[in-house]
Design a protein around this nucleic acid. Structure first.
Ligand SMILES: [Mn+2]
Ligand SMILES: [Mn+2]
Ligand SMILES: [Mn+2]
Ligand SMILES: [Mn+2]
Lengths: 225, 225
DNA sequence: ATAATAAATTAGGTTTACCTAAATCATCAT
DNA sequence: ATGATGATTTAGGTAAACCTAATTTATTAT
């Protein structure tokens, strides 16, 4: 369990973690999609990861994978590093929130335990990354945040943004321009019946903004008490 | 010339640059030694690097290699990143000068042009790394510093430390403890005839220190006017 | 229940960067 | 000028992580 995992394996485990976040298993094709490689290559790797000692995943032919505890720990370690780096780049090096994901995707694999410790300390042990995602602490515990998807907010209700999707810089620049950041308070003005497009008002911002359901699924909020 | 070079190739080029710093060529076995791999593997890689378009090295069977201009540019780029990272870690994240080399050896390959730019700016465009080595500027120019090796300093003369070797943490901790850092002023007290061991006095430090010729070769100074 | 379709796996390669062992080349002392 | 020695190269192989094409399995609609 203490040998170093390759960059690629680290990314596989992180992706499996993300895909199985809300239970269930990750499929070969989902992984192929997010990793940008062929399904055949994924199958190969999953077989390998399920036969290490200890195994990192539980894999059943044709039925997807889930992480073992060893796999989960490895994934959380990478997630911690990824999110710490994102936060560091924004706080200390003047990055915008749309620039950090790609950078962190590479740097996470080059980060030593010491660097992790120093960045964490320099930031005062932050709990959230720039996109509102929780940063696992040094013991790899992560706060469980109560949150609902924007898609599930009732029309007319208020909410406060918890997290936004973080991979697509274009989306982030759009959201940033609209003031839709973690912590922002909003009111859902309407949701059209068939295509579920939503109009919403960010408090303290003049213009209304429009969000489709694909994006809305990935934006979460806490509902006002 | 704009495709990305692999981590390994970046290290090869950097090592060739260092080994040919004062003219001449780098040999297969020298490279095998510093890279910690077999001579056969080095031969293979040198053949490959001499046949790219453009070639990165000029290679003559049994007679070593030197960098082409393309190779030199690539090496300087890595040297800039390496040294910027070392300086950043010391200045901004509380690293000691013996901890930074190993860290930079990895991070240099994960550093984007943007990160390079931001770190450079955050440090105020520094000209030297923690070990006194010059940092090539954004255009990859490096100041030529007039310096002589400690081994060549005359007994009784004074000098000011310019650079110290940077790879071995133990050496660095020893030098640090003695106050022998870039900028420190010293007087050479004696040099024994046969084994060339040197006693020297660091100004403002009570105890004398002793340095052998292997280490002395890698410490450089400027001589007082 | 069957056939069409979609998802996943297997088979057979490739590339990169390493290895060891064997062969060859260069150099230096006689 | 020769032969020993050490340095270097060649030959043949491995491991990681990918690929495409062909095959098999699972799911879904009739
Ligand atoms: Mn990554
Ligand atoms: Mn993020
Ligand atoms: Mn390196
Ligand atoms: Mn240095």
């Amino acid at each position: 369990m203490s040998e170093t995992l390759s960059h690629n394996i680290q990314d596989y485990l992180k992706r499996i973690f993300e895909l199985t976040r809300s239970g269930g298993k990750a499929s070969t094709s989902q992984l192929a999609e997010v990793l940008g490689i062929s399904a055949a290559s994924v199958t190969n790797m999953l077989q390998k990861l399920s036969k290490t000692d200890p195994p990192y995943v539980i894999y059943q032919k044709h039925h997807g994978v889930e992480l073992t505890e060893a796999g989960r720990q490895a994934a959380l370690k990478m997630l911690r590093r990824h999110r710490l780096i994102e936060h560091y780049l924004v706080m200390k090096l003047g990055y915008t929130w749309d620039e950090v994901h790609q950078e962190a995707e590479i740097l996470e694999h080059a980060m030593s335990p010491l660097l992790e410790k120093r960045m964490d300390a320099a930031l005062g042990h932050p709990e959230f990354d720039p996109h509102g995602d929780p940063i696992p602490n040094a013991e790899l515990h992560m706060p469980e945040i109560v949150q609902i998807s924007l898609n599930n907010l009732d029309v007319g209700k208020n909410g406060q943004i918890v997290r936004v999707p973080h991979e697509d810089p274009q989306v982030l620049r759009y959201l940033g321009k609209c003031g839709l950041r973690p912590g922002a308070k909003i009111t859902l003005l309407s949701r059209t019946p068939y295509d579920k497009t939503m109009r919403l008002q960010v408090h303290d911002v003049a213009e209304e903004i429009v969000i489709g359901p694909t994006l809305g699924d990935q934006i979460t909020l806490k509902v006002e008490a």
